Deep mutational scan, measured.
Amino acid sequence: MQRVNMIMAESPGLITICLLGYLLSAECTVFLDHENANKILNRPKRYNSGKLEEFVQGNLERECMEEKCSFEEAREVFENTERTTEFWKQYVDGDQCESNPCLNGGSCKDDINSYECWCPFGFEGKNCELDVTCNIKNGRCEQFCKNSADNKVVCSCTEGYRLAENQKSCEPAVPFPCGRVSVSQTSKLTRAETVFPDVDYVNSTEAETILDNITQSTQSFNDFTRVVGGEDAKPGQFPWQVVLNGKVDAFCGGSIVNEKWIVTAAHCVETGVKITVVAGEHNIEETEHTEQKRNVIRIIPHHNYNAAINKYNHDIALLELDEPLVLNSYVTPICIADKEYTNIFLKFGSGYVSGWGRVFHKGRSALVLQYLRVPLVDRATCLRSTKFTIYNNMFCAGFHEGGRDSCQGDSGGPHVTEVEGTSFLTGIISWGEECAMKGKYGIYTKVSRYVNWIKEKTKLT
């Protein structure tokens, strides 16, 4: 034993070699072989497995989906700052455009905790909710729209109204504003409101030439003092309507412009014939205590009207009353817009006519005020429907199939267009061939041609 100890002390290297040989010859039971080890760690190889990531292109799944990435790591994937920024906006807080917040056709661009709407022409605001041009839906104005110097929408209202708090709607500024039905039992019968379409306001006024200088022999019209197929109006439903009495009662109609003036057809009036105007009328054979009678003290036909040349060209006249009318729910003026808007309103496509005229061709006159909704007829169809001249200051309205029309005794009465609950004068009943005849239409004086003249002559002093 002493000898062994001496050998170990003198030859430590020998001992180490012996131990190493023993270990190498022993069977290893701690580690699995290569094949079995792979069965336990069965993990798919990654895209760049075996390579240094710093030297390969980034992978979106590896960089940002398996674990949260930084902007720089995302930049490695896209290799483009702009594309990385677009991805980053949604990656950080989701897609803010998912709810489609942009209105009126706006395009949404996502941002971090926010979004941006790219608005089409005519709109602005956070969600493109603000109209900035009158060309689109009248700028959301209830009545009139004008573009300011910086191309912003400025709404306005006709006389007797003021802008509401929203700067879009119009509200009454006087007790009985024009064009409004205020009798409670008839307010439910107000005709369907007309909503502004998209309009090209630059070209809204037709490029028409008034044929002022045409000389033409007097034409022989049949029954051209021209509501057939209409309905009984309720008291106060058309408070701007008046009836004219002269040699015979209810020979023509008219509309209240203001307390002192009536507008009617020029062919209705004769110099030297006494005319009485009755406002607030409903049943011409009954006294309903809503009527107001006034005498006409002055007749002003349009300066281009000449019955000797043509009885229905420039067929418009103004009547001055001896005493002002007292405005109330049964006696209310009709609204008159400017030339541009009167023309736009007419193009809405349908209007209402009213009167006490004959209820059928050569038949009896109506006792109760009649009204009828009539569609506008395109000019080409209008011209083809008659052998008589249709001037540019006239328009056609009615039904091709016949059966409904204005008729004798309705002449001078109103053709009105309702705009968001307020009625505007767009025409004056003038003439036609018979009444409600198939293929024939009622012919009306186009008020847009005469609004400046009306307003100039009827100013209240």
Rank of each mutant, 00 (worst) to 15 (best):
E418L: 09
E456R: 09
E420R: 15
N104W: 02
G427K: 00
G122V: 01
P172G: 07
Q143M: 07
L189D: 15
Q370W: 03
R364W: 05
D232C: 08
T461Y: 12
A380P: 10
G13H: 06
T445G: 02
C407L: 07
L327S: 03
S99A: 11
V451Q: 03
F360P: 09
I336G: 00
T389Q: 14
A337M: 02
E456L: 07
E456H: 08
V263M: 03
S448I: 02
T458K: 02
N295C: 04
E323I: 08
H361W: 07
E165M: 12
V228G: 05
S156F: 10
H415G: 01
T133C: 03
K362C: 03
Q90R: 06
Q96E: 15
T422N: 03
S182H: 07
R404M: 05
H302N: 04
T381F: 12
G442L: 07
A266Q: 02
L244I: 10
A266N: 02
G403E: 14
E456W: 06
F348D: 08
N213M: 08
W356F: 11
I284H: 06
P414E: 03
E27G: 10
H302L: 01
H303W: 08
K311P: 11
E433D: 14
G357Y: 13
G432R: 14
G403N: 09
E27L: 03
E142F: 04
Y441H: 05
T16V: 08
G413Y: 15
K459W: 05
P175S: 11
G246N: 09
H302F: 06
K260I: 04
N100D: 10
H415L: 03
E76P: 15
L321M: 06
C69I: 03
G412M: 12
V451E: 03
E124V: 03
G349N: 05
T271G: 10
T271A: 09
W240P: 00
T417P: 00
N42V: 11
K440N: 15
G125Y: 00
V195H: 13
P12Y: 14
P172L: 04
E420C: 09
V243E: 03
L163F: 01
I299V: 07
A397T: 05
N138Y: 06
N42P: 13
F424C: 01
E231T: 13
L24G: 04
I15Y: 06
F144S: 01
N328D: 08
S204W: 10
A366V: 06
E72S: 08
H282T: 13
D111P: 01
F224P: 10
P101N: 02
L325Y: 03
L130Y: 12
F196G: 14
N328R: 01
L244W: 02
V353F: 03
G409D: 05
A317G: 03
V374E: 01
G421Y: 04
Q57V: 13
V199G: 12
K137Q: 12
K39P: 13
R449I: 05
H303C: 04
A265E: 00
V296N: 00
R83I: 09
V30P: 14
V326G: 05
Y444T: 01
K168H: 14
I344Y: 12
L460R: 12
R191M: 14
A250L: 09
D212Q: 13
V269L: 12
L60P: 15
F348E: 15
S184Y: 11
V92T: 06
R358I: 06
K89R: 11
T461P: 14
L383A: 15
V331N: 02
N310A: 11
